[in-house]
Design a protein around this nucleic acid. Sequence first.
DNA 1: ACCTGAACACCGTTCAAGT
DNA 2: ACCTGAACACCGTTCAAGT
Lengths: 244, 244
Amino acid sequence: MSSPSTPARGRPARLDPDRTVGTALELLDEAGLDALTMRRLADALGVQAGALYRYFATKQDLLTAMAERMLADAGTPPAAAATPDADWSERLADLARAMRAALLARRDGARVFAGTHSTGPHTLGFAETMIGVLREAGFDDRDAAHTLMAVANFTVGHTLEEQAALRPGSGDPADPERLCQAVTVTPGRFPHLATALPTLTGTDFTAGFEFGLRVLVQGLRTLDRTGHRHGYAAGHGGGGRERS
Amino acid sequence: MSSPSTPARGRPARLDPDRTVGTALELLDEAGLDALTMRRLADALGVQAGALYRYFATKQDLLTAMAERMLADAGTPPAAAATPDADWSERLADLARAMRAALLARRDGARVFAGTHSTGPHTLGFAETMIGVLREAGFDDRDAAHTLMAVANFTVGHTLEEQAALRPGSGDPADPERLCQAVTVTPGRFPHLATALPTLTGTDFTAGFEFGLRVLVQGLRTLDRTGHRHGYAAGHGGGGRERS
DNA sequence: ACCTGAACACCGTTCAAGT
DNA sequence: ACCTGAACACCGTTCAAGT
């Protein structure tokens, strides 16, 4: 069990960044973001709170490292990785789905991600993959960058709402009951909203996510056609793999 | 100046919800969300911190009231209000622009809004107006509700990034320098990202917002054509005002 | 009815001192 | 080098008591 390339010289070091982030993510799943405290995390690690600051200058840095690890493998979703010759729009959608899945995998995952700006390899790799798909499809730099931001913003925003609505009515009651009551208490004031209430307070978040994804992809497709100056247009039907 | 219908009987009441929210918004603009403390707000109001809890059961409730007031008049943007016979897509885009403008108008406005779930008249009125525009254009309940969420999520997500990037590099350095350095420090690892860097780290946020808006609207337009069961299709060109 | 004063149970962060 | 112990400067929230 003694790995030969261990550079540890002095004591075994009970604390290291990897274990700290791992325990922090476990604590997040158990107690939620609001209960994720430097003191509580230190307790779970069997250490004093001050010790955490030897590896993370600030709590924000710890949260950023957590967000970075959450996105592991999100840049290489199984579907898109297994079918590199698929339609660009399907690869794009799969990347967005992988991101949503990564955020949903942990309690308050979207909130953690939205509050940080990781520049780690996983986060950057995700962006790299997505921009790569778009550029191969003929998008120029500007459009690819803007598309990345639009899809990522939609995905994070959606998952934020999804996780807010799913947790029990603690401090900030999400849509379910509060919205319903507020609308129906004034019968004639919000007629259109009242009609749309069943969908808005429904629990089929996947349907809403797929709707937005479909709308975005369709919009991008028309952009591809009517468009600007593209060197080559691809992905109009289904095949058309392109190399180099 | 003594309004006849004032129900105040005892003392003038130095504190009231309206003034409290107003002062809180001023404090937000001056110091930012992280510095908006119940104690500091109480100081600005010339009162003890505990007194705030007679009108707001929790700080979250105060933030919700702030978010609600921010959205005042966002449901009736000048452009869309002045031209009720305009294309539905232009009215939709104007509503999104009004929402972005409302959030940008105050420091950390997007962060305050994203962290709350107001069910007040302004927030509900905004949703009502948007769903109304969509239903008049022929969208069914489900599509209208999903579109509202997609547009709102994109707008909030975009403005969140915009305000994060605009403020000085305090605790959480946004894109400008950090991202640039992280990408360029490993030359060959993120080639596509590196190409898109100028746009991603650029400061023309309006261009990025309008891009996403255009993509969403175009996607919704194709949905309108290929679509489902619509009673009537409208807004395909420009005119076509419809009443009752 | 409305607010004060003071406390309760915490926070993130720092830093001498130990080992 | 790595962690402890203890402090600093705060938090949100509650609640008897005053006026």
